[in-house]
Amino acid sequence: MFKHSLYRYAGVALLSTCLLSSCTTTKKYNALLAQKVKLEREKADCQSALSRTTRERSDLSKQVTELTEARAQLAADTSLLSNTLRKSQSVYADLSSTYDKLIKNHDRLMSNSALESSKLSKDLARREEELKKLNETLTKNRSQLDQLSSDLKSREERLNELERILAEKDKAVNALRTKVSNALLGFNSKDLSVDVRNGKVYVSLSEQLLFKSGSTKVDAKGQDALRKLAAALKDQQDVNVVVEGHTDDVPVARGTLGMQDNWDLSVLRATEITRILTSAGLAGTKITPSGRAENVPLDAAKTADARQKNRRTEIILTPKLDELFQILEAN
């Protein structure tokens, strides 16, 4: 624009010069005209350049506007990104802190896990050892239980056999008592009794039935009873006979032939009865005479009646228990 004004003023000045100098030569005129043409051409060029510059300025203004808008958008985006960045940094800081805590917890857990694993391994080994011992004990106990069961079964069998034998023995004892009682029915019950005690048959004969006071010789009535008893026992091959002589607590009279005390009296009476039984047919191998003197009284009183009860002979009949003893020895 400035250049256009300059050209205009130059043309006016030139024209004024030509008018004032009417005497200007054609040469100068032509020169001025040529200069004018040149100036006009330059003017046209300037106008063209100005137009182009104006367009460029318009384009630049548009670009400036666009750039301004873009800058504003960039500023907004930058602000948003800054906020986002700050939030991201905050989140990152939190995540980093959390990660550090997780790492520490992981390390602690790994350490605790290693200790716990070691402890559990030791406990497991100990429990396995205990289980092994328990299994060994169980096997041993099972073996012992099997042995005990076998022993119990064997004992039950022996017990059943023992009960059978005892039942047979009781049956035999009762049958023997009945047989002896039947054989001695004719005698006074005060002088002779037949009882079962402790699985044995006791034939108790009073002194009045067998002997005179202080004598070792059996009276006729007593001999009759002993012979009947021997007859009842002849076929009892499995019965042992013990003859026990009993006295009272009164000492024997001084000078009694062959006796010093009641021991002698009780033994001699038992021996005499044994002779009668054997002479009546009872095997001597089955009879054992013995004297108990005054040591096993029926009545401990010091009366005449008590002493009379105590002066007696007991013939004890015992069934042989060989089979029973064999079973007991097997236990």
Rank of each mutant, 00 (worst) to 15 (best):
E207H: 14
S79F: 15
Q326R: 15
L134I: 05
K153G: 13
K133R: 12
V296L: 04
A172K: 11
V239E: 02
C18M: 14
E207T: 05
R158M: 05
V243F: 03
H106K: 13
K101C: 04
L131T: 09
G245N: 05
A70W: 09
Q35N: 09
T313I: 09
Q35P: 04
R126E: 10
P251K: 06
N160V: 04
K132L: 04
P319L: 10
V196W: 02
S111W: 00
K234A: 02
I327M: 05
L159A: 10
T274M: 14
L32P: 01
Y99T: 05
I273C: 10
T256H: 02
L265Y: 00
T54E: 06
S206A: 06
L50N: 03
L185I: 14
M1W: 00
A72Q: 13
L6M: 04
R127P: 00
N160R: 14
G214W: 10
L265W: 01
E42N: 11
T303Y: 07
L176N: 02
N188W: 07
T65N: 13
V243S: 01
S204K: 07
E69K: 05
E314K: 03
E69L: 14
R52D: 14
S181M: 01
S113G: 13
D322V: 07
S111T: 15
G186W: 07
Q73P: 05
Q89I: 08
T178Q: 10
E294A: 13
K38L: 11
V296Q: 08
L205Q: 02
A301V: 00
D261C: 03
R312L: 12
L210G: 00
L102Y: 09
Y92Q: 08
G281R: 08
R227W: 01
T271D: 14
T313N: 06
N141D: 10
K190F: 12
A75P: 04
E294L: 03
L20K: 10
E56G: 06
S111F: 06
W263K: 04
G284K: 15
A114M: 08
